[in-house]
């Protein structure tokens, strides 16, 4: 079954200041309205999500700091083994943007993979009051070699895109994930003899 062909499993982190909307980025990419009352009393630790990017199915284990950012320093184990990180700020809050440097420092300190893919996400573009311009975000992203996207988790604008772009970039960086692939997860070799044409756009050379 084509659906079963998982190319890789990836660990993705979401970091950034409290209140920038990290957790809501993790919600679904559809038109379903999210019930804010749902706020889990126990709190969400992490999620497993399946994403298809250009015909490649990737399973993501996505870790949200879940409030630990208040303690400033996350445990090193949180960073260990991550292939991708989503660094979030709130475009309506300058202070969340100003703290990005500290988050990057922490990431550099604890990340176990030198070529971890970083994506900068300016969230809450649906808000009228904007304190951080798109250009500022872009400039910061260029300086620190991050992918960059602005989005609104509330309207879902750009959120799907953020995850897809990040996964695409990770897949294009084979050293990041090839050795980590579990034999069970690596579906390419056991493709039941049926080449999947759809899966070939752009990534064939890697496989």
């Amino acid at each position: 079954m084509d659906e079963d062909d998982v190319l890789t499993t990836l660990k993705i982190l979401i970091i950034g200041e409290s209140g920038v909307g990290k957790s809501s980025l993790l919600l679904r990419f559809t038109d379903d309205t999210f019930d804010p009352e749902q706020a889990a009393t126990i709190g969400v630790d992490f999620k497993v999500k399946t994403l298809s990017v250009d015909g490649n199915k990737a399973k993501l284990a996505i870790w949200d700091t879940a409030g630990q950012e208040r303690f400033r320093t996350l445990t090193p184990s949180y960073y260990r083994g991550a292939q991708g990180v989503i660094l979030v700020y709130d475009v309506s809050s300058q202070v969340t943007f100003d703290r990005l440097g500290q988050w990057l420092n922490e990431l550099d300190t604890y990340s176990t993979k030198a070529d971890i893919i970083k994506m900068l996400v300016g969230n809450k573009i649906d808000k009228e009051k904007r304190e951080v311009s798109r250009e500022q975000g872009l400039k910061f992203a260029r300086k620190h070699s991050c992918l960059f996207i602005e989005c609104s988790a509330k309207t879902r604008d750009g959120v799907q895109c953020a995850f897809e772009e990040l996964v695409e970039k990770i897949i294009q960086t084979p050293g990041l994930w090839e050795n980590d692939t579990r034999q069970r997860g690596f579906g390419v070799g056991s493709n039941q003899g049926q080449p999947n044409e759809g899966a070939c756009s752009g990534y064939c050379s890697l496989i």
Binding site: T9, L26, L27, R28, T30, D32, F34, D35, Q38, A40, I42, G43, V44, D45, F46, K47, V48, K49, T50, K59, A61, A66, R182, R184, G185
Partner: peptide, 27 residues
């Protein structure tokens, strides 16, 4: 194996338990 799931969320630990929730709507 938790990676068998297509989509699922895990709550923080209560005692030794983690509850599984919908990854998308968190029900």
């Amino acid at each position: 194996d938790m990676m068998t799931f297509e989509n699922v969320g895990f709550t923080n630990t209560v005692g030794t338990a983690k509850y599984l929730i919908c990854a998308d709507c968190e029900v």
